[in-house]
Amino acid sequence: MSIVQIKDLDLYYGDFHALRNVSMNINEKSITAFIGPSGCGKSTLLRTLNRMNDMIDSVKISGAVSINDTNIYNPTVNVELLRKEIGMVFQQPNPFPKSIFENVAYGPKIHGIRNKKQLDEIVETSLRGAALWDEVKDDLKKSAYGLSGGQQQRLCIARALAINPKILLMDEPTSALDPISTLKIEELIQELKGDYTIIIVTHNMQQAARVSDQTAFFLNGEVIEFSDTSKLFSNPNEKKTEDYITGRFG
């Protein structure tokens, strides 16, 4: 049932020990939230899942991350194909300076889809999937920069859906957005759950409580507690978790 297995993962930025002995299994087609104070390693762990950390020179990793029982740090793994299986949405909306259509079509195109009709279809499905289609269907040729921040973020979600990933990584996807856009994206995340495994980083505990099935609480690079969301927020095992969720620090 679990799709991601993390085992004894340690990560260093140079000498700085950013992830300490992290182990967890993440269930397929569920929503998992990472919470914890800023700088505790949530984004770092998220980036190990699609190997975006490869691009930071100082990073050293030990331990194993497996997706569908394949260790993704195995040297024979093709990073580009791995990332095709894993969509990612970033903290700041980051659409390309291209049209709405081209933004969504970018992924399918680089992965070899040329057929115009097929692309049209993918773009429409993805935009519908990201609950943006009705707002932009007449403006597909217009620049993505004309959209509002919330729309841009949904466009980025659509762009990630267009490569047909199995897992969707979201790094504080609503922290740059207003409350109404945030609500829309949270609803969207709920809808996507049926088709995708979603891992979302948030420093907003209410958000974690609202959207996720399971929650992991991080502190200084360690997983302090990882359990069902309702359990973690109502009856945490650890004192540190309790301190955090009751707002005593962080």
């Binding site: 975006m52 990332r83 969509g87 990612m88 700041q92 390309f96 300076p97 680089i110 490569i163």
Partner: peptide, 27 residues
């Protein structure tokens, strides 16, 4: 060109060449 655009492209499985020619150069 902000690195966030490169990250978006890499996260979708682009090679360096695709990031360079399809994202950075047009931008």
């Amino acid at each position: 060109v902000p690195s966030s655009l490169r990250n978006a492209a890499y996260a979708m499985g682009s090679t360096k060449l695709e990031v360079a020619l399809k994202v950075v150069v047009p931008a």
